[in-house]
């Protein structure tokens, strides 16, 4: 029996729809589980207290704080570097082999496995530059990892600033750099920030790059300087779920939920920034 095209289409579309359901259902399941099992653990003490009894009780405050430090450190290093690299590519670079090399390098940086970043950070920052296992080494490692995201987003934001703005400024005898600083960058800023926050939210959830460069197994105090180790949420979750026996699942799920919430707050922030400029954009 030969199927009519109409029936074929019906079957094909059902299969495609089913595939989408298969993709989306686990997302919903994961979130329901996290919220159902994690939410009961979350209270003021959990968020603000030090861990106790070999991390089997108490809070996860140092891990939250550590992740915050790493996020800040990553922004401080990666934002200027990424934005200026994008400025070079959009405003100064000509179409030649060197520009192509830079683009290929960015693509490859984006594809380097996170654990390889960890090895690299260990080799360069921890040992060769003698930073030791520290917030500094961890932030630098994470910065290089998120650099491609920031460069790509910044390039897009810079290119979306109308060429006419640049001409108007240059026609007044304003130099190229001043034009970029005073006209192009301010107008590209929201897009740049959106990309940066998204990149950094990825860094916040990464474990492998910080494994050998900063993360402390158990450190119930806050770091004193950038040369200190710190705890971090993703690593803490790893430790709780595989390295410490007899941990109340509530604490594990609570930690997972806090980590996911933190990443989502950052993502949400990016969406808000993006929506805000879309509303305000004047050209």
């Amino acid at each position: 029996m030969k199927l009519s095209p109409k029936w074929k289409q019906r079957i094909a579309f059902s299969v495609l729809g089913l595939a989408s359901v298969v993709v989306i259902v686990p997302v919903i399941v994961i979130f329901s589980i996290l919220i159902e099992k994690g939410l009961p653990a979350i209270n003021w003490e959990f968020l603000t207290a030090m861990p106790r009894m070999g991390m089997r009780a108490g809070g996860i405050f140092p891990a939250i704080a550590g992740t915050m430090y790493l996020v800040l450190g990553t922004i401080v290093v990666a934002l200027p570097l990424g934005v200026l690299a994008a400025v070079y590519l959009v405003e100064y670079a000509r179409q030649n082999w060197m520009t192509r090399m830079i683009e290929v390098a960015i693509v490859n940086l984006a594809g380097v496995p996170s654990v390889v970043y960890g090895l690299f950070g260990l080799g360069l920052f921890v040992i060769f530059l003698k930073f030791g296992s520290s917030i500094l080494a961890g932030s630098l490692t994470l910065s290089i990892m998120v650099l491609p995201v920031i460069i790509t987003a910044s390039k897009e934001a810079l290119s979306s600033v109308p060429q006419s703005f640049r001409e108007a400024s240059l026609a007044l005898g304003v130099s190229k750099w001043q034009t970029i600083r005073c006209i192009v960058l301010p107008n590209a800023l929201p897009g740049i920030l959106t990309g940066t926050i998204l990149g950094v939210s990825r860094a916040a959830g990464e474990t492998a790059p910080i494994l050998f460069t900063v993360a402390a197994f158990y450190l119930p105090r806050l770091p004193k300087s950038v040369f200190d180790q710190c705890m971090a949420l993703p690593y803490h979750l790893y430790v709780l779920s595989t390295q410490v026996p007899n941990v109340n699942p509530k604490i594990q799920y609570g930690t997972a939920l806090v980590l996911v919430a933190l990443v989502f707050i950052l993502n949400f922030l990016a969406i808000v920034v993006r929506a805000h400029i879309r509303g305000k954009k004047q050209w």
Binding site: E167, A171, L172, G173, V174, S175
Partner: peptide, 11 residues
């Protein structure tokens, strides 16, 4: 930059 300052342009 100097020439553009002395010879300005309206688009």
């Amino acid at each position: 930059e100097d020439i553009r300052k002395r010879v300005a342009m309206v688009f």
